[in-house]
Write a protein that binds this DNA or RNA. Structure first.
Lengths: 105, 105
DNA sequence: CTTTGACACCTAGCATAACTAGGTATACCA
DNA sequence: TGGTATACCTAGTTATGCTAGGTGTCAAAG
């Protein structure tokens, strides 16, 4: 994606993806690419620290999956994370409508 | 506004406001507040450096107004700035549609 | 006539978060 | 055996909005 545009909006994306079911980091990257039809093709160095940050904030919790030889850290939203998702959604709607109103589109 | 949400989108707002007519920095702040219905109430420390940056990039040019005892630096978009506005607009549309698609709203 | 607040400009330094660029390791296919 | 995809990690860079301070003009209120 382009530059700094994503700043402050990534949390919303991650919480939205994980609200539809637990997933590990690499799968989140693929889900973002798929859902956005290729617009969000984000590097691991973006996603992994963001997931850690959200877990530190208590919005996600993670467990190591054991049903595979390849280790996977499975993330899912906490109740606090689900609540955060709805507030982030309304904030996002207000934000993009404010932009559209300002730009006149 | 909230946190980092604006990062990467301020240039679009400034170019859009100034595309509707030259204005000085303080007036730009008021225009943003008015157009966004209060959503974008941005401090001078955000606007002035941003205007300087856009001028450095050749997207705006400025002149000091002389018809007032109070000095005002009047900004207006250059041709390059007008072109940048249209590309930023299409990028913004792609961006917010990608977010909405990803979030599912 | 002094003070307060709106107007109008400026910038050094801070904070945040996405990204770069490196690393480790497993699995599978040619 | 080598390459590619999967899957994780993090130190450091970078970009930019914002904080917090500064200067000065002007008008209205006290």
């Amino acid at each position: 994606m382009v530059g700094e545009a994503l700043k402050g909006h990534l949390d919303l994306l991650l919480l939205a993806v994980l609200a539809d079911g637990p997933a590990h980091g690499y799968a989140v990257i693929e889900a973002l690419r798929a859902r956005s039809k290729g617009a969000f093709d984000l590097p691991e160095g973006t996603i992994y620290p963001a997931l850690h940050r959200l877990e530190d904030q208590g919005l996600l919790k993670s467990t190591w999956s054991e049903d595979s030889a390849r280790r996977k850290r499975i993330y899912q939203p906490t109740p606090k994370g689900q609540q955060a998702l709805t507030t982030r959604q309304t904030e996002w709607k207000q934000f993009y409508k404010a932009i559209n109103a300002t730009v006149g589109i």
